[in-house]
Design a protein around this nucleic acid. Structure first.
Length: 583
RNA sequence: GCGCCCGUAGCUCAGUUGGAUAGAGCACCAGAUUCCUAAUUUGGGGGCCACAGGUUCGAAUCCUGUCGGGCGCGCCA
């Protein structure tokens, strides 16, 4: 709807070339805003004030010229100049009626923009290491990423969703060793479990389910033979490394690989399952191991080499990240010949661009903010723009129950899993609460509120509006007063109460909200909007009876509610929250 | 020490990228249903937008500094 006013302003400016040229580098869309206050009309433009300096004229005079040039228009009721030079636009009822009709005509497509060809966006999110089940912190990454993906798609962008599986490196060896030890343990062979190993119960489960055919059960003495002791904290890392080496020597690299691969695949599949149940799916699960087998790391390193972006020092190969604004240079190949995680990381982002994605969005936990500079540096060194990579950081989550914080440590395996959370509060509440706050705001997730079936709970508040409208339509049929849509559309002029006007206005904002929320990667904008929209609905519902005797008014109100229902359902769908017919 | 994020009502948080008198929920106080779902609604009190400067027609928003909180700063992943 905003474009109506923006177009009028553009047209008016065209009649004043000196103003138009001053405004040339201004996006008129951004000078037109919804008003905060109904007494200022429906839309306001601050363009006169923005142009005042360049045009060397009084803003109110400029506004006067623009208003005169706007003239009269059937979609505009009146235009006023207010305050220091605001131009306030009051839209005519017919403009709102036309928008209401658009909602009904477009249905699920309302608020969605036509598909654009570019930029092609690669959205990477969650990407938790496959060393254990997802916890509530990952849940926020999942909910946020999925919703941002939905918003971007609604805004018309092609979005490819990807999960980067860190299935290479030492952590995977530690995982394999942990499972291996639990297998031995279950077979009666007791070996001191490493402090640095994975201690969660799920490790035992994996040990019990994996295929160990072809692996010969070792003797306890052979395992213990030559193993260092684990007494102090400093012993932890050498001890676990010795265990990995021992497993490899007893079963061969292939034998250990058998345990390791099954372990990580079991966990990865569990993660995929948890996410799918949470309504979060990916187009691709991108394996870090595959970067090595496909030669992509070699390719990326070769590109850097060619461009003179590598140097040797202390036996290692370095990337001069400082040249590109990073704090320090980074090692890509260690002294021992093994590539660093950073090498895979730049190779992965290189590959993303090489696959034809124009804009890369990484959604990361707030503790990863240090990576942005170095990965951007890598992209730049390989000939791409650092700005091609956008990083959205998501702050941490604290769970509260009975008013106090639930302690969580990832190391000790003391954490609430995403699965447990969903079981307790349900998917709808979880998805909603995760994106209710700005991603750069620390999130306090109150389990008591999320589970309460009361007016404290904003999820139910919004869902209830949807159910309530559904109910009214059912009731209308029961009373033999079904909606006559044609009659409703013909009588929209009867929607005159302040509540109805406010509701129509709020509804017409929806496409602008989607656009804004997508641009800012800000799902909370949509959450707050839906709450406001639904508040207007409840208010209207409470003030005036719908199923009255006047058929024209009744059908008009039902028509309005039908449209509101569509908008609420569309908004909830983007959030990944269900729109129930009944509650 | 350096870097990133945050600081707005008693609590939890929005604030349309610089706009008009700073908003919402919860909590607190007082009302509304012979009627479509009261999981609803109407009204009220409550603020040095952490603090101090600066930029300009205009600042919660941008810049600088200070204070306070969170998180990073490996040839770990």
């Amino acid at each position: 709807m905003k474009h109506i006013v923006a177009n009028l302003v553009t047209a008016a400016l065209a009649e004043h070339p000196e103003l138009a040229s001053a405004a040339a580098d201004l996006a008129i869309e951004t000078t037109v805003e919804r008003t905060r206050d109904a007494s200022h009309g429906d839309f306001a433009s601050n363009i006169a004030m923005r142009l005042a300096k360049a045009a060397r004229r009084n803003p109110r005079d400029i506004a006067g010229d623009i208003v005169a040039a706007v003239g009269s228009n059937e979609q505009i009721e009146k235009v006023e100049i207010a305050g220091p030079g605001f131009i306030n636009f009051y839209l005519s009822p017919s403009a709102f009626h036309a928008e209401l009709r658009a909602v009904l005509d477009q249905g699920q497509a309302y608020g969605r923009q036509a598909r654009k060809d570019a930029p092609k966006i690669l959205l990477e999110f969650v990407s938790a290491n496959p060393t254990g089940p997802l916890h509530v912190g990952h849940g926020r990454l999942a909910a946020y990423g999925a919703t941002v993906g939905n918003l971007l798609e609604a805004a018309g962008y092609p979005v490819h969703r990807e999960y980067y599986v860190n299935d290479a490196g030492r952590q995977m060896d530690i995982l394999g060793a942990s499972v291996w030890l639990r297998w031995l343990e279950a077979s009666g062979i007791e070996i001191p479990f490493p402090e640095a190993g994975y201690r969660g119960d799920y490790i035992q489960d994996i040990a019990a389910e994996i295929d160990v055919s072809g692996l010969e059960l070792p003797k306890q003495g052979d395992v213990l033979d030559g193993l260092p002791v684990q007494e102090t904290k400093e012993d932890a890392e050498p001890y676990v490394d010795a265990l990995i080496a021992k497993a490899k020597s007893l079963h061969g690299d292939d034998g250990f690989e058998q345990v390791r691969q099954q372990s990580l695949e079991s966990i990865r599949a569990g993660i995929e399952d948890d996410l799918a149940k949470f309504g979060v799916t990916f187009d691709k699960w991108y394996s870090e191991q595959s970067l090595t087998t496909s030669g992509r790391i070699d390719d990326a390193l070769a590109v850097l080499e060619e461009r003179g972006m590598l140097y040797k020092k202390d036996g290692a190969t370095w990337f001069p990240a400082m040249k590109f604004g990073d704090e320090k240079d980074r090692v890509v190949v260690r002294e021992n010949g093994i590539r660093t995680y950073f090498a895979s990381d730049i190779a992965y982002h290189f590959d993303k661009r090489e696959r034809g994605f124009d804009h890369l969005i990484d959604i990361l936990g707030a503790d990863h903010h240090g990576y942005t500079a170095r990965v951007r540096a890598g992209l730049e060194a390989m000939g791409y723009k650092g700005d091609d990579l956008e990083v959205e950081l998501v702050q941490f989550v604290s769970l509260f129950r009975d008013g106090s914080k639930i302690p969580m440590t990832t190391r000790g395996g003391q954490f609430v899993t995403l699965r447990q959370l969903c079981a307790e509060v349900g998917n709808d509440a979880a998805r909603f609460y995760y994106v209710m706050r700005s991603n750069d705001q620390h999130l306090d997730f109150d389990l008591d509120v999320a589970t309460s079936q009361s007016n404290d709970n904003p999820v139910f508040y919004i869902q209830y509006a949807h159910a309530r409208i559904t109910r009214v339509f059912r009731k209308a049929v029961e009373l033999d007063l079904p909606l006559d849509k044609k009659n409703g559309l013909a009588n929209l002029g009867q929607l005159l109460t302040p509540q109805e006007k406010s509701l129509m206005s709020a509804m017409s904002r929806y496409p602008e909200i989607i656009e804004l929320a997508a641009r800012n990667r800000a799902p909370q904008t949509l959450v707050h909007y839906l709450r406001d929209l639904v508040a207007d609905f409840h208010s209207s519902y409470n003030a005036d009876k719908v199923l009255g005797d006047d058929a024209g008014l009744r059908d008009a109100r039902l028509t309005l509610y039908a449209a509101v229902k569509i908008v609420v359902a569309n908004g909830l769908a983007i959030l990944g929250v269900s729109a129930p017919e009944e509650m």
